[in-house]
């Protein structure tokens, strides 16, 4: 999908965890792990395109703090020195959706759309860390009323359907701590989204997708409800608008909630 937009993505095999999962146990170690990834990208002369909201916020925050705080930088470099690495500023960190919005732009993307999705309606879940903490994102989008992903969905011709409490957190970060609370958080969102007739929920973070997609059946059985709401990762949707093949090229075989009805509707359009 990125190739259609002439975006060249490089897999860095030495990239490891961003550090977010250990922040609660040792925020210092989390920062060193984030700095390690930044250092690997710097050595290769590459910027970072992240696909998960939490990775985006942790790497962006680390970059910002290390650039501006020499004392902290020295501490982190002491730890990185033990693995023969050093933090170097200059690497840009951006979420894939932000790259699409800022560096390519909705108008330029729209020029590549070959399949109008005008018959489709979608609701969007932004996810917290794409927008917050706002100070690290330097004015990108409005965390209280975001628009960027709305525009990215609208450029496919599809309608975006607003819903109650659309900024509510997915609860993913506490899924392992107290599952019942996390699932209730996700349930509220699924309830609110399915109040309207939408073809799918669009996410931009794989971890949010775990809550709404991988856990959807569990929520249905725990609470005796039924949603059967397909959850698509935004690049899957954009890929459809680019005319790419859903199962072979866009991973629709991997979606946990079968998007068959949506694909049938798409084929019926042709």
């Amino acid at each position: 999908m990125a190739e259609v937009l002439d975006l060249k993505l490089t897999d860095l095999e030495d990239f490891a965890c961003c550090g977010f999962p250990v922040k609660s146990t040792d925020s210092g170690a989390s920062l060193v792990m984030a700095a390690r990834n930044l250092s690997i990208a710097a050595d290769r002369g590459l910027d970072i395109c992240s696909l998960c909201n939490a990775c985006t916020s942790v790497l962006t925050e680390a970059n910002r703090e290390l650039k501006g705080n020499k004392e902290l930088r020295d501490e982190v470099n002491e730890e990185l020195g033990k693995i023969d690495m050093e933090y170097k500023p200059g690497v840009k960190v951006k979420h894939f959706s932000r790259i699409l919005y800022e560096d390519i732009g909705p108008d330029a993307i729209k020029e590549r759309v070959t399949k109008d999705l005008g018959d489709f309606s979608f609701s969007i879940h932004y996810g917290c860390h794409y927008l917050r903490p706002k100070k690290i994102y330097e004015g990108f989008d409005n965390p209280e009323d975001p628009r960027t992903v709305d525009e990215l969905v609208e450029l496919t011709g599809a309608k975006v359907i607003d819903y109650k409490n659309r900024l509510q957190c997915c609860g993913g970060a506490i899924l392992g701590v107290e599952e019942s609370i996390a699932l209730k958080m996700a349930k509220e969102k699924l309830d609110n989204v399915t109040t309207n007739d939408v073809d799918a929920l669009i996410t931009i973070c794989p971890f949010c997708s775990i809550m709404y997609e991988d856990n959807q059946r569990k929520i249905e059985s725990n609470f005796d409800v039924e949603y059967k709401l397909p959850v698509l990762y935004y690049p899957q949707l954009l890929g459809l608008a680019f005319g790419l093949e859903a199962r072979k090229q866009l991973g629709f075989r991997l979606n946990k909630v079968r998007p068959e009805a949506l694909l049938k509707k798409l084929e019926g359009d042709e």
Partner: peptide, 20 residues
């Protein structure tokens, strides 16, 4: 997709030098 590494010795070392 390209394969991913199973372990990272240097991340393990960072962890060994920390509270975790």
């Amino acid at each position: 997709l390209p394969p991913v590494k199973k372990t990272f010795e240097d991340v393990n070392l960072i962890a060994r030098n920390s509270e975790i």
